[in-house]
Amino acid sequence: MAPVSDHDLLVLSEDPFNAETRLDEKTPAITPAGRHYVRTHFSVPTGPRSIVLDGAGTAASISFDEIRALPARSMVVTLECAGNGRRFLEPKVPGEQWGLGAVGTATWTGASLRDVLRTVAIPSRTVEVLFRGADEGMPKDLGKRIGYERSLPLDDACGEDVLVAYLMEGAPIPREHGGPLRLIVPGWYGMASVKWLERITLLDTAFTGFFQKDRYVIDGEPLRHIAPRAVLVYPPDGAVVERALWLIGFAWSGAAPVTRVELSRNDDDEWVPMPTSFLQSNPSPYGWAKFTSHNLLLPGLDQEYSLLIRAVDAAGNTQPVEPRWNALGYANNAVQPVRIRVRG
């Protein structure tokens, strides 16, 4: 299934459907659904219009309309696949070979998960909340058919910003993006935001399923918050530019908002902060920030440069220059150089 035009996305695979956002100078601050990256592990299912709530030995159901009747919240959230940047790791690792476009920013509207959970009694011994999507299939190295399942610690699940979403940019969530109902966990890598949500289970022990313990881990440690990243979308790599350079990019982090974007060139150890006025403020702490710089003068004509951009967030997390290699290729947020030549 190819739910959107190949011209709108960079398609990596057709079934399961995986495609990147095209990041360039025309990329808007809010990513339309048809241009927002898509990540699926199995064939795209038809999601249910109700969710089974399972706990304390009993099961109840909450319908789409009942969820819509709960107080609604809207948030601008940047979602990023944990495998974004995998293509740049050496030696190569298995998995979808994402470049830098497995990221997108949208306005999601839904009910607080906390309000949904309040419709049932939560046993005092509950430690985690398990979410199951309607998608299922056979991972290549597992040898059996499973569904996509992920859990959150109870305290995280009950955070005020976790949503059971039903709108994306004010419209019903498209099927390829997990509609009609999906989880949105702001600040976390996209694997936590379970799509085609069909069942929520209250657990009294930690979940150890395939997508919790065998995937989305680095050296046995589970992935959580999105690591800081800045991406230069203009000029493109290999461009011939005027000496007065125009820069456009995006910066984001899941642990805290980005407060600074720094520039270096030709692998120089010196990093120069861009003026804060170049970094456009985002009303949401979970959305990326666009940055622009006009008339940046480069010395010399007919010379080649390597431009490097990195992000620093409010918690002090700094985007690294060197990648952290790992066997599954997750969280590679290392700076990617952009090579340009100044016109003679």
Results as ranks from 00 to 15, higher is better:
E198S: 12
W188C: 07
L247F: 09
I226Y: 00
P222D: 08
V272I: 15
G220P: 09
A256K: 06
Y216C: 10
P257K: 07
T259G: 13
T201L: 02
T208R: 15
G187N: 02
A251N: 04
P273T: 09
D268H: 14
F207Y: 15
R265L: 15
Y234W: 13
L223Y: 09
Q212P: 06
I218K: 09
R224V: 07
A256E: 07
P235E: 03
A192N: 09
P257N: 08
R224H: 11
G254K: 03
F210K: 09
L263S: 01
R224K: 12
V241A: 04
M191V: 10
D214K: 15
R215H: 13
L183P: 00
A239S: 13
I226E: 07
T276D: 15
R243W: 06
I248Q: 14
I184Q: 01
L181H: 03
S253G: 08
L181Q: 04
Q212K: 11
F207V: 05
T208N: 13
V258I: 14
V261D: 02
I248H: 12
T201S: 15
H225P: 00
V233W: 01
S193I: 03
L183Y: 00
M191Q: 14
F211N: 08
V185R: 00
V185G: 00
R265D: 08
P186V: 01
T201Y: 05
T259L: 09
G220M: 12
Y189S: 02
S253P: 08
F211P: 00
V258E: 00
V233F: 04
D268L: 11
A206N: 05
G220K: 12
I184Y: 00
L181P: 01
R260C: 14
L197N: 03
L223E: 05
D269T: 14
F207R: 09
V258A: 02
V233T: 15
E262R: 14
I200F: 05
A239K: 07
I226K: 04
A192I: 01
A239N: 07
A192C: 11
S253W: 04
I248F: 10
I226M: 11
L203K: 10
G254I: 06
A206G: 06
F210H: 15
R243L: 02
V185Y: 00
V194H: 02
N266H: 12
M274H: 07
P235F: 07
G220L: 12
P222W: 11
Y216P: 02
V231T: 12
M191I: 11
T205K: 11
R265M: 15
R229Y: 00
F210V: 13
Y189M: 04
V194Y: 05
L181S: 04
Y216S: 07
P257H: 08
R215M: 12
V240D: 09
V217C: 12
D214C: 12
I218V: 15
V261F: 06
L183F: 04
A192E: 06
L232S: 03
Y234Q: 11
P275T: 10
I248W: 08
S193Q: 04
